[in-house]
């Protein structure tokens, strides 16, 4: 084995950091975007087709670019925001631009599942658009939103492996540079094993949380 346990632990920490920060920022970006994609569409709360069409187009553009290309293409933006294009912090920027639009779509889907009758009842009560979003739409979709964020987090774990290409580090990077490029089968097995445990853990956590919210 070409790596020691210290390397694995620090790689694990890097992965956790990358995923946690990019999840945080991409949710901050994706949640309002997802809400806007719902409420500005035709016949909805704040129907505004120009806004909807522009946002919809932007999300589609970001969702079409393969992550590895986005990673390189975003380098100037990364430099502008983080000051450098190398390292764990630098990897977070492309991850956010990758996961943000993805989360927006997932959130849009969850919110669209809310019974239109509930929104109608809210309107009949004289709720403001903001009250309808915060007190009706989001609480009704919460369990489905948690599952959506679980999917997004697992997607980020996968994408963070590729972030090794910009020196982001992390478990995935270890798997690629040692396991794949240097044919170190043991490192490959260990790193992939760790990733499996992480993904399993995240999915189980998400399922339990969603179930608890749904209270059935």
């Amino acid at each position: 084995m070409l790596v020691n346990s210290e390397q694995i632990i620090s790689a694990l920490i890097e992965t956790v950091q990358m995923v946690a920060f990019s999840l945080l920022f991409s949710t901050i970006l994706g949640l309002p975007l997802g809400i806007l994609l719902v409420v500005t569409r035709k016949g909805h709360l704040l129907q505004n087709l120009p806004v909807f069409n522009v946002l919809n187009g932007i999300v589609n553009i970001f969702r079409s670019v393969p992550f590895i290309i986005l990673l390189v293409a975003m380098i100037p933006v990364t430099r502008l925001i983080v000051g450098t294009s190398i390292g764990t912090a630098a990897a977070v920027v492309p991850l956010v631009f990758y996961a943000g639009p993805y989360i927006a779509r997932l959130i849009e889907n969850s919110l669209l599942e809310v019974d239109p009758g509930v929104i109608e009842a809210a309107e009949a009560m004289g709720a403001t658009p903001w009250q309808i979003i915060s007190k009706f739409l989001i609480p009704e979709a919460l369990s489905s939103l948690v599952l959506a964020l679980t999917i997004a987090t697992i997607g980020l774990v996968g994408a963070s492996a590729m972030a090794g290409a910009v020196g982001g580090g992390g478990i995935g990077d270890l798997a690629i540079t040692y396991g794949y490029q240097r044919f170190d089968t043991v490192t490959m097995m260990i790193t992939v094993g760790i990733l499996i445990v992480i993904v399993q853990g995240l999915q189980s956590f998400g399922n339990i949380a969603a179930k608890k919210i749904r209270r059935r």
């Binding site: 009758g117 009842a121 009704e140």
Partner: peptide, 10 residues
């Protein structure tokens, strides 16, 4: 309403 339109989460 016909279908009650209650919030199931509350």
């Amino acid at each position: 309403f016909q279908h009650f339109n209650l919030l199931n989460s509350k």
